[in-house]
Design a protein around this nucleic acid. Structure first.
Length: 899
RNA sequence: GGGCGGAUAGCUCAGCGGUAGAGCACCUGCCUUACACGCAGGGCGUCGCAGGUUCGAUCCCUGCUCCGCCCACCA
């Protein structure tokens, strides 16, 4: 008996590892670039090698796995390519900390080469943790193609891209204002700096003019005055106009400041209308400095202390310097008071240290020429965003893009392929050059810096598919179909992949960008170790299984809302676990009743549609519902509404298949009223066949969402010859219109209404489950009578009746008859202890009359009658008629009742 | 300062021109031979506020209030 194949209890832990190994070994995850099917490809956003699986990974992985498994089952040549990211700063910091803690050494103690050996060793040891954890989730990734951002091929791609961009003038080296993190000791891109709102003060002080007089300026960063090279006023400002061109002797250093007129920098209505200008340490001032040819004086050392340019202040930390400058200015009688002022403090995204704008010689990627085609591509719809609201965000950023500082003063990363000779010539080359390309000098020094980690990430869809080689994979799978990722890296990553992909391939890197929200706890709070509200995916998987976690994540995640997070709680996960159990138990019930079922014969019978088998009403109904569900699920998946697909499946499986279909057929299947003749036999065969078919199709529909439990069950089901060995490579079901059956759905809806009404009466009067009732259904509608007569057995079973009769006229009532009225149907149920019956009916009558009245009011409205479309009017008239009938019957029941 | 979301049952969210839906929670019965991780039944809402369009608005338009997110150098 096959039921023995499914243990009584659903134990995910036992099942999941087994199936994952099986699928992987069978090669189901591997994509063949030469396969002759339409491609569906996705590249998994590479997690940092320092990463440990968190809910964000679990969400992105689950969404992508659902898409991939669905497309694979549809027959696409499906590639899902995994990989990991070297994560420059993050990894370097982790290894440095380890080095410090275990040996008390810094990376400088080891030197570059030795330190990098350590990092590689660390990577070998820990770098694949995350991959193992993704396997626990069921990720059907093509592990054979796994990449690492710093492996040989990817490094080759990075170098090729850099050199090519340099040749094209899109990569350049220049002295520019950049964001400098004094703790990480590296330059950062604009994106790696976060503005933190804070309350500071605006300090006012006076500069004494050469030849007498003063000009008052204000600043939130007094120490920067040590780098001032001018004071700017608005050229039209009557107060200061005359001062333009005069000079100021800096009070602390040997430097003369000019008073300049600059209509861009200065807003004459703000503050005193005079602005101190520090071109080397302020973004606006830098621009003003360029406009006005001002000297740019860098006053900071790389560690954030003041340098020799600051005279007596040299060597002091910038924070201390701020106080000292205020003190000194005050001492000299130049302070002019402070006012509270809100200031955004720029902080390093990684270490939270305050970032200093600083002039520095760095490498940049020229952004605008790359951004333009990337904007155009989206405008033309070559790539679309889901939800589409993100399109605007993308445009906004792309249209205001600034050059990208890509050099980092780190050791761990792709070293910049630029070499310098003593004469200062720069050689940028694909292979390490023997001598300077300008002067032939053989004494070359490679640039010490490495590239921003996001530079290699930007190339990811290209480099993972083999670019710059013209590989079969690149030919088959580029552009990729979907890029699914969190909206938080839209600019960091998605936008840059667009730019690079289009630039190097002349085609967008992906057709659809699918963005998911951030995961928070059930109260909407960000999950953090400090708050202790973290839900660890690994724990959840161990406790409830990957299927439960996956289903919960997909169920909850609406791709639609910008700024609306996914609220995850253990409760939701448990709920989803219950669903797994429900499926398990439904399968057990089915298996217990499939003895003698011949999958082949039934499959053949259904080949030409439902007519081929002697299907009962219940069978026709569930098949109709099944095919409708398949259609709805397909539509939802096509629209990337995964949560909707999950909901539809949940509702179908639980509330239609289990609550109604299984209840309708389990009696007959069990052999109550064993087959007497050929026709009964055929009915039994049809019922078993339908049950097995519905379960089979439902499991396939569910498989992308919960791959393990569905596979486990599916393998125990009897199935026709010639189907694949694994559920994950069967065909994803599509709706077959021949099975859609409006008539069966209408009839079952009627039976459901009658059964619910009977159950309501039973519940209302506390009739014990064992008590069998008898009921008479009264209606003048012949079709209803016929339907109930034909399918009375179902009503009797599900409403626990002894006898159900149908009549045109109400039967005599006694003191133990309850009456149910809905529409034009009356139900007389007995024996029931009907104390309070009149009250109950009266309440129903009141409600029906109120409904009827408001309905009538609407119909009496001349404007409505005149303007509303015919069909709407008809609907309302029909409603009024039906309500009228109900009221009439309820009134009879109320008055005619005993008691 | 600019841009984008959201406001619907106690909670999480669907619906988006024809008198409001789901799941959970709650209440009441049930250990009915698949499942108590279950079954059956029940109550629950001035659909953020104010105007407008319409025969009719939760749904469309305008304004407002409150929440959330992103971008931005005003000293």
């Amino acid at each position: 008996m096959p039921a023995e194949d499914l243990p009584k209890n659903y134990q995910p832990g036992e099942i999941e590892g087994r199936w994952y190994r099986h699928w992987k070994e069978a090669g189901y995850f591997h994509a063949d670039a030469a396969a002759p099917y339409a491609p569906f490809s996705m590249i998994f956003p590479p997690p940092n090698i320092t990463g440990i699986l968190h809910m964000g990974h679990a969400l992105t992985c689950t969404i992508q796995d659902v898409l991939v498994r669905w497309r694979r089952m549809q027959g696409y040549n499906t590639l899902w390519l995994p990989g990991t990211d070297h994560a420059g700063i993050a990894t370097q910091m982790v290894v440095e900390r380890e080095l410090r803690e275990s040996e008390g050494k810094s990376r400088h103690d080891l030197g570059r080469e030795k330190f990098l050996e350590r990092v590689w060793a660390w990577k070998e040891k820990h770098g694949s943790r995350i991959a193992t954890q993704l396997e626990l989730l069921g990720a059907s990734m093509d592990w054979q193609r796994a990449c690492f951002t710093m492996d040989a091929e990817r490094s080759h791609a990075v170098r090729e891209a850099f050199v090519r961009l340099h040749e094209e003038g899109l990569v350049y080296r220049a002295e520019r204002l950049i964001n400098w993190c004094t703790r990480c000791r590296t330059a950062l891109s604009d994106l790696e700096v976060e503005a933190e709102p804070s309350m500071g003060e605006l300090f006012h002080f006076a500069y004494t003019l050469d030849g007498g007089g003063e000009i008052v300026v204000a600043t939130t960063r007094p120490e920067t005055m040590l780098g001032d090279t001018a004071v700017a006023v608005h050229p039209d400002d009557e107060r200061y106009k005359a001062l333009i061109g005069r000079t100021i002797a800096h009070p602390f250093v040997e430097r003369a400041l000019r008073i300049i007129g600059d209509p861009v920098l200065v807003d004459p209505t703000f503050g005193t209308g005079a602005v101190k200008v520090t071109p080397a340490h302020d973004w606006n001032d830098f621009e003003a400095g360029k406009r006005n040819g001002l000297p740019m004086v860098n006053i900071l050392n790389l560690d954030g202390t003041l340098n020799a340019e600051t005279g007596a202040f040299a060597g002091i930390d910038r924070r201390e310097a701020r106080k000292r400058v205020v003190e000194e200015l005050t001492a000299r009688g130049l302070a002019r008071g402070t006012t509270p002022h809100a200031i955004p403090v720029p902080r390093c995204q990684r270490c939270r240290a305050i970032v200093e704008p600083m002039i520095s010689l760095q490498w940049f990627v020229s952004a605008e020429p790359l951004a333009k085609p990337a904007i155009l591509a989206v405008e033309q719809g070559q790539t679309t965003f889901v939800p589409e609201g993100w399109t605007g965000t993308y445009f906004q950023w792309m249209r205001n893009i600034k050059d990208w500082c890509v050099s980092r003063q780190l050791w761990w990363g792709h070293r910049i392929p630029a070499w310098y000779c003593d004469a200062g010539h720069v050689t940028v080359a694909r292979t390490d050059p023997p001598s300077c390309s300008t002067c032939g000098d053989a004494r070359l020094r490679q640039d010490d810096d490495v590239l921003d980690t996001w530079f290699s990430s930007a190339l990811w869809p290209l480099s993972t598919l083999g670019w710059p080689g013209a590989t079969p994979a690149l030919r088959s799978f580029y552009p990729t179909s979907v890029m699914e990722t969190g909206y938080d890296i839209l600019f960091f990553w998605v936008a840059r992949m667009m730019m690079m992909g289009i630039h190097f391939m002349e085609r967008v890197p992906f057709r659809t960008v699918l963005l998911h929200s951030m995961i928070v706890d059930e109260h909407g709070e960000k999950m953090s170790k400090v708050k202790g509200n973290v839900i660890d995916p690994a724990d959840v998987i161990e406790k409830h299984g990957a299927d439960a976690l996956r289903f919960a994540l997909v169920w909850l995640s609406t791709p639609a809302a910008q700024g609306r997070p996914v609220k995850l709680s253990m409760r939701r996960i448990e709920e989803s676990r219950h669903f797994c159990t429900k499926i398990w138990n439904a399968a057990r019930l089915a298996l217990m009743n499939l003895e003698g079922h011949d999958a082949d014969t039934f499959a053949i019978a259904l080949q030409d549609g439902p007519e081929g088998a002697s299907l009962s009403l219940a069978d026709r109904w569930i098949l109709s519902r099944l095919h409708r569900t398949a259609a709805e699920v397909g539509g939802a998946l096509e629209a990337f509404k995964l949560n909707e697909a999950a909901q539809i499946l949940h509702r179908f499986f639980w509330h239609e298949l289990c609550d109604w279909y299984l209840e309708m057929v389990k009696g007959p299947l069990r052999g109550e009223g064993a087959p007497h003749d050929q026709s009964d036999r055929r009915t039994l065969i049809a019922a078993q066949g339908t049950l097995a078919t519905v379960l089979d199709v439902a499991l396939r529909l569910l498989h992308p969402f919960m791959p393990f439990v569905t596979e486990e069950i599916w393998r125990t089901l009897p199935r026709p010859d010639g189907v694949p060995q694994s559920l994950m490579i069967t065909l994803y079901p599509t709706a077959d219109e021949r099975f859609l059956d409006d008539e069966a759905e209408r009839t079952v809806a009627l039976l459901q209404t009658v059964i619910s009404e009977l159950r309501e009466i039973r519940a209302l009067y506390n009739v014990p489950g064992q008590t069998r009732l008898e009921a008479t259904l009264v209606t003048t509608d012949t079709r209803t009578r016929a339907a109930i007569e034909a399918h009375g057995a179902i009503v009797r079973d599900l409403a626990r009746l002894d006898r159900l009769s149908v009549a045109a006229e109400p039967p005599p009532r006694d003191g133990s008859t309850a009456v149910g009225v809905f529409g034009e149907i009356e139900l007389f149920v007995r024996p029931v202890d009907i104390a309070g019956e009149r009250l109950r009916l009266q309440k129903k009558l009141d409600r029906a009359m109120a409904d009827l009245a408001s309905c009538q009011r609407k119909l009496d409205d001349e404007a409505f009658r005149a303007r509303a479309p015919d069909e709407v009017l008809k609907e309302w008239e029909e409603r009024a008629r039906s309500l009228g009938e109900e009221v009439k019957r309820l009134r009879d029941a109320t008055e005619g009742g005993a008691e």
